[in-house]
Design a protein around this nucleic acid. Structure first.
Lengths: 217, 217
DNA sequence: TATAGATGATCAATGTCCTGATGATAGAAG
DNA sequence: CTTCTATCATCAGGACATTGATCATCTATA
């Protein structure tokens, strides 16, 4: 039994999806009000589906709240045509984005895919209860090994470590860096990332999120 | 009576500071909305205090706006901890930076110091109506000739031109520069000065003030 | 005035960020 | 499935700030 928290102001649509997913032993609990949903106890759920066009609190804020406080995957769905939403959602830490209208089948695929990914990282997370990154003073340790980083590299990696698992937009990263200039159309960031990757030894720890930024896993 | 424009979204904090500064005959007018504050007529004020964590418009943008359009000193304050705002604030043209939380006493000290500096440059500007230096956009002209300066050179010379005839301490100069790092025991400043002198052709225009800093004559 | 210590000036060398070019890859469209 | 385009990765080159060394100049003290 998988428990899904849904925040969606169209009850009809929520009901439709709920019925469809029931056949896969997925229970959907919908709240039309985001505040109600958030106070319902997020920890009970395995996954959250958020509607961006929410009344009162913006869906993006709800997403931020959930990502920051809890450790469950988040899928954002939206009827807005604005493509920027995808970028924003992923930047805020959402794990997937599905534009409305969507086929319930598609949503099911995303849910299973996401949960598989998460359980994997959870497992490895259990064996490595503490992150293998550690920031102490002005040096960063990776698997116990001190890294020799330039100022810009330190600032970038530092931000990624602090928000491990969450995608940081290019803009966020550059803004967080005092040494990197703002004007450049962010191409130097690519180089810095490249340098960090080679110094880590494992290039896959820093993943590029297309059109958004980077994420440390 | 000194008129201070404040843009700060925490009215309680604004009120606190306002009451404290009242004893020194400083009147603080606070706007919670930066757009409102900017449209209130900046010219009426002697100084501006900006909060970086502003809603809507970013504090940095507001700072840019004020510096570009008006001629009053700007103090930036910020509660952000994750980025090195100081560098950016000063780069945008702010005259001072104060991280939150700060003692109102400290803010008063900065205000008086800033206003003293400003009135001085105003006076000397009157006695020296025309200077053979001119700053237009991102280039500096010396006797009609455009100078080819690196960023650090531009920042340093720019400060000296703006306060022509007044000695600027090494610390002031380095603080006014976004590209120069603060840690170094200021030896790179010597090199920058040397470069500027050779580019000016006339080494005597920038005078060293022993134990203090430099002065443009 | 003469000497010694401190501060500033300049040069050469190093490390770092930035830029442009080229190749690789993923997502979209046909 | 294939092609096309946008984004990302990497490399090599150049510009620049910083450092250390060496020389010049100022100030203090006798």
């Amino acid at each position: 039994m998988i428990n899904v928290l849904m925040i969606e102001d169209d009850p009809e649509f929520a009901e439709l999806l709920s019925e469809y997913l029931a056949q896969y032993d997925i229970k959907v609990t919908n709240y039309e009000d985001p505040y109600l949903g958030l106070s319902a106890g997020v920890k009970k759920f395995d996954l959250a589906i958020l509607d961006l066009t929410l009344p009162g609190m913006d869906g993006l804020e709800a997403c931020e709240e959930i990502v920051r406080k809890y450790d469950i995957p988040v899928i954002i769905s939206s009827a807005r045509s604005d493509i920027n939403d995808k970028v924003k959602a992923l930047a805020l830490g959402a794990d997937d984005y599905l534009p409305k209208p969507y086929d319930p089948k598609e949503m099911y695929a995303r849910i299973t895919s996401l949960l598989r990914r998460y359980s994997k990282t959870k497992e490895s997370g259990d064996t490595l209860p503490k992150s293998d990154f550690e920031i102490r003073g002005d040096t960063i340790y990776f698997q116990g090994q001190a890294l020799s980083l330039t100022p810009a590299e330190f600032e970038v990696l530092s931000l990624l470590v602090k928000h491990q698992g969450i995608t940081q937009s290019r803009e966020q990263i550059i803004n967080a860096s005092a040494t990197m200039s703002i004007d450049s159309q962010g191409k130097s960031l690519d180089v810095i990332i490249s340098k960090i990757r080679s110094k880590l030894g494992d290039p896959k720890r820093i993943q590029a999120v297309r059109g958004v930024g980077y994420k440390l896993v």
